[in-house]
Structure formats: structure tokens, C-alpha cells
Computed example of a mutant assay.
Amino acid sequence: MKKLDVVTFGETMVLFQPEQMQPLEYVYEFPKRIGGAESNVAIGLSRLGHTVGWFSKLGDDPFGRYILKSIRGEGVETSSCLFTKEAPTGLIFKERLSPEDVNVYYYRKGSAASLLETTDLDEEYIANAKILHLTGITPALSDTCYQAVMKSIEIAKKNKMKIVFDPNLRLKLWSLEKAKQVLNEIASHSDVILPGLDEGQFMTGKTEIEEVAEALMGGEDKTIIMKLGSKGAYLHTKDEQETIEGYPVTQIVDPVGAGDGFAAGILSGLLREEPLPIVVKRANAIGAMVVGMTGDIEGLPTLAAVEQFMQPNTGARDVNR
């Protein structure tokens, strides 16, 4: 088995996103795409030149087969994916009323991915990677998915893998109390945590960015990289505390997926063992590039493309090109 740089898992759904900006009740054509935080990250890493594995439990239906073929076609290793006849593949509909006003409608309750359980995990496959990437979405899907996430952490710890965690808070999936409990539990086992400022505030109960970061560290040697939107990101370790400026964008086309592109950039930099400020700077650039294109994965760049984007330039960058 080929050694993987990163392994990740979670639900990917078929995404129906109209080209026009108007309420969904007036839309009659829906191009078919895919969307899922973990597979977005996996595809982003593949385009940046890394070997990455992704798995899930998909419905044994045309949508499930479409998802697998799409992700595998992006160069992602998918041999641990499973199919089930017990539930369908989940769906997403995205409504764009304006570039800044985007609504997402999920049809995922009781989906195939929610049936994932600990016995579906291939320990050898997970242990074959250097980094385990997790989000807070997967444990919210069901109790068995939560148990699978915790089992994957156990496998990673046993094999001395680095764990990178993006909380990706989805309050529609579970209660506030349960979300806070589980996200903090996973964070306590993680080496690198990638929250948005609002997610960090939710998890810790703190308001000031430095206090949030310290609380997430929990007195341990962790790396906290907090997303600040257009302002960039805040880096916090025991030795470094710095805000890394973002890249201005003249035209936002679709903000969904920017955080996943950011995560891919962080993981890529960690694998390259670059200085953390450089890692965060590139991740900021990728996030800025992603918002300039429709769809969750379409704007994810190659390493050459993001390096070119980062070249010194005057004025804001129009990434809708």
C-alpha cells in the first residue's frame, strides 16, 4: 500500500447549485457537482501535490457512484470507501441570492454516511498516513459516526500520527450542549486546531482571540490557527502569536469551501515542514482563490497557481478568472 500523507473521512453529498442568483423556487436547472468538507480538503491536497486518502459510506445508487468516481478522478485514494443498500446518498441544494447571501439546504438525515461505524474503519489504511484530518461534521451525523471518529483518534495516537482538527460547526445537526462537548473532546486529542473565531468562542466561552487560543491549547503544546475571514488568520503556539494578513478579493463569487481550501493549505505546509507564518500565508491565499469561483472544489488551486497568486502585486486581486 502506497504511503499516504493525509487520511480523512466524512460525508460527501451530491451538490445541486444553479448558475443564476435567484430563489430556488424559481430555478429550473441544477448542474450536478459534489460537496463535502473532508473530500474538499482531500482534493485540495491532491492538487497541491500530496498523496491523500478519503473514505466514507456511500449509498449504493447512481449518486454514490458519481461521488466516488469524481473524488477518485481528482487523484484521491478511495479504496476504503464502502457502499450500502440500507440508505441513500445525501444531497445538497445551494441557493445564491447574491455573492454574499448563500443558503445551503441539506437532505442528509438517515443518509448512507450516517451509518458509518467503528467496524467500517480499516486500521491499517488509517495508520498508513502521516496525518489524520478530522472535522466536527462527521461526529454530528450519528452516534455511530461519533464512535468512528473517536476510534480513528485512538488509531492515530497508537501510530504516533499528527491529528489536525477543523471544528466546522454545524448547529443544525446537533444541540448546542452536545456540539460543545464533542468538539472540545476532539480538540483535546488534536495537535493542530483550525477554528473560525466564532467557533473558538463557542467552544471556549472566551471572547478575546488570545484567550480563545489559550483555552483551546489547554496548557498543552498545540498549534492553534484561527480563521478571521478577510482579515486573515491568527497563529498561536507556545512560541508564536501572530496575525497573518489575508489577501483582498475584489469579487466574491461563492464563499462556501474557502475554509476547506484553507485547511488544505495548512496541511500542505505542515507536510512540507515550512515555517508556520509561511504555511498560514499560503492557506490564506488559497481561501481567497476559492471564493472567486462557483462550487466547493472548482477553485482549489495547484501549488504553481497559488504561488503565482501570491507574487507581489498592487491592489486587490480579482480571482474570478
Rank of each mutant, 00 (worst) to 15 (best):
M1N: 08
K2I: 03
L4F: 10
G10I: 07
E11C: 09
E11A: 03
E11R: 00
L15C: 05
L15D: 09
F16P: 03
F16H: 11
Q17D: 14
Q20S: 10
Q20Y: 13
P23I: 10
L24Y: 10
E25F: 04
Y26S: 10
V27L: 09
E29R: 01
F30V: 04
V41N: 07
A42L: 08
S46F: 14
R47C: 09
V52N: 07
W54V: 12
S56K: 00
K57N: 10
L58Q: 09
G59L: 06
D60W: 03
D61P: 11
D61E: 12
F63M: 15
G64C: 11
R65F: 06
K69Q: 13
R72Y: 13
R72D: 12
V76R: 00
V76K: 01
E77Q: 10
L82D: 04
F83N: 08
T84L: 03
L91W: 04
I92V: 15
K94Q: 10
E95P: 04
P99R: 00
P99L: 05
A113E: 09
A113T: 10
L121W: 06
L121V: 08
L121R: 02
D122G: 04
E123W: 10
E124R: 04
I126E: 10
A127V: 05
I131A: 11
I131E: 09
H133M: 07
H133N: 11
L134N: 05
S142P: 09
Y146S: 12
A148V: 15
M150F: 07
S152P: 05
N159R: 00
K160D: 14
K160N: 10
M161F: 07
M161Y: 04
V164H: 02
F165G: 14
D166A: 11
N168C: 12
N168G: 13
L169P: 11
L176M: 06
L176R: 03
E177Q: 06
K180R: 15
Q181D: 12
I186F: 03
I186S: 12
H189R: 12
S190P: 02
V192E: 01
I193G: 11
G196E: 03
G196Y: 01
L197V: 14
T207R: 02
I209V: 12
A213N: 06
L216V: 14
K222M: 09
M226H: 05
L228M: 08
D239W: 04
T243P: 08
T243V: 11
Y247P: 06
P248L: 11
T250G: 14
V253E: 09
G257P: 05
G259I: 05
D260T: 14
A264R: 00
S268Y: 02
S268P: 06
G269K: 00
L270P: 14
E274P: 06
V280W: 00
K281T: 09
K281A: 13
A283S: 03
N284K: 02
A285P: 03
A285I: 12
A285K: 01
I286H: 05
G287W: 01
G287K: 00
G292R: 01
M293T: 15
M293K: 09
G295I: 05
G295N: 02
I297W: 05
T302I: 14
E307R: 07
Q308D: 13
F309A: 15
P312R: 00
T314P: 05
G315H: 05
G315W: 02
R321I: 08
